[in-house]
């Protein structure tokens, strides 16, 4: 069932984006895809009504942590909850993400049910 909510998915891997998109679309969300941090900022700015962002960390041009920091200093993205979805598992990076305002950190490969549960909780659908 459609929730009417938009989620921005930022990942430089097309396969990874499709995996996340397929999972979220099946859960009723509309997905906007972005290919790196720069594209992510643009897509978030042009989709100010998006409810949440799912973002990779290691990406070319602007990485996920840089995008997160840029987003949190600028409206309207500052209010959007962000989940980092990455192969990175280093506590120091998690701490950076937490301090920059991320709401969650999932280490790839992700479990679809875990991602959907986290998204539902953060957008108020649970």
């Amino acid at each position: 069932m459609a929730t009417g909510k938009k989620i921005v998915v930022v990942d430089d891997s097309r396969t990874a984006r499709q995996q996340v998109s397929n999972t979220l679309v099946a859960a009723g969300y509309e997905v906007i895809e972005a290919v790196d941090g720069n594209d992510g900022l643009l897509k978030i700015m042009s989709n100010a009504d998006a409810s949440l962002v799912v973002c990779d960390v290691n990406m070319p041009n602007l990485n996920g942590l840089e995008m997160l920091k840029a987003l949190k200093t600028d409206q309207p993205g500052a209010r959007m909850p962000i989940i980092m979805l990455t192969t990175e598992a280093q506590p120091a990076l998690l701490q950076q993400a937490k301090q920059a305002g991320a709401k969650g950190w999932i280490v790839k490969p992700f479990k679809p049910e875990m991602l959907v549960a986290a998204v539902r909780k953060l957008v108020g659908d649970s």
């Binding site: 506590p91 991320a102 969650g104 950190w105 999932i106 280490v107 490969p109 986290a118």
Partner: peptide, 12 residues
């Protein structure tokens, strides 16, 4: 516990 395991989630 030195790193988050694959497939795990940490919430802040």
């Amino acid at each position: 516990g030195a790193a988050v395991e694959s497939g795990e989630m940490v919430t802040f």
